[in-house]
Simulated assay, not measured.
Amino acid sequence: MPENEETAEQVESAPQETAAAQEAATSEEEPFDRERAEEKIRKANSEAKNLRERLKELEPLARKAQELEDAQKSEQERLTEQLSQAQERIRTVQQRAVRAEVRALAAAEFADPDDAHAFLSLDEFVGDDGDIDTDGIRKELGELLKRKPHLAKPAPADPSPRPPRPDRSQGSSGNGNRSSSDPGQIFAGIMDQALKGR
């Protein structure tokens, strides 16, 4: 509290200096009146004392006001941080929605629909109201296929349906028995036929 004492001394000395200056001005005109001068000094000291007391009363209030201001700043900073986090979550959700829309629209023409969103700026397709611009996505996907045709699905060589392939394991061999691929069984079958034919 040394600052308060200095302030109080300044407040106290200011009226005294003012009174002394007034006295000097009046001394030229009037003769010095000691009682009057002492009365002015007492009045100035009384005013200074009242000002010191008011200052002491107001200091805690000023401290509390500063604390409240600091608390409001921290509350405002907390709310600002919460707002920025919420905005970031909204942006993430919007990007996921746009990515899903791009994948869905690219599935018909792209070999890998995930490649499509890698080449596009997803933020362009979200309007101010949060809606997704599907027409814009279609347009950009078409332009992307023109620039990078290797991303498109390969065109089928022959659009006609293929006939089924023959399965050699089906059907019978020339003698009506199913042939085995095991050489031991083949030899046993030949020997068995030879012995029966005797």
Rank of each mutant, 00 (worst) to 15 (best):
A100Q: 13
Q87N: 07
R91L: 10
A86C: 00
G176C: 03
E143D: 10
L144S: 14
M191T: 13
D128K: 04
F187C: 11
A104T: 08
H117D: 11
Q193Y: 12
E124P: 02
Q66E: 15
P154K: 10
S179I: 12
Q94T: 05
R36S: 02
R165N: 06
I41K: 14
I41E: 13
T18L: 15
K49N: 14
S46G: 10
L122V: 14
E53M: 03
G197F: 12
A24W: 08
A20D: 15
G189T: 11
A71D: 06
T18R: 07
A104P: 01
A48C: 03
E3A: 06
L61H: 14
D192L: 13
D70C: 01
P156M: 05
L83F: 04
I137Q: 02
H150W: 06
L120K: 05
Q72E: 08
E29F: 05
P113C: 05
H117Y: 12
P183M: 02
Q95S: 10
D131W: 05
K139V: 04
D182T: 01
K64L: 06
A100G: 06
A44K: 03
E3M: 01
A48L: 08
T18W: 06
F125R: 04
G142P: 04
R198T: 11
A65D: 01
R78E: 08
R198M: 11
P166C: 06
A108G: 05
L61S: 09
Q185H: 13
P156V: 11
R103F: 04
A111T: 03
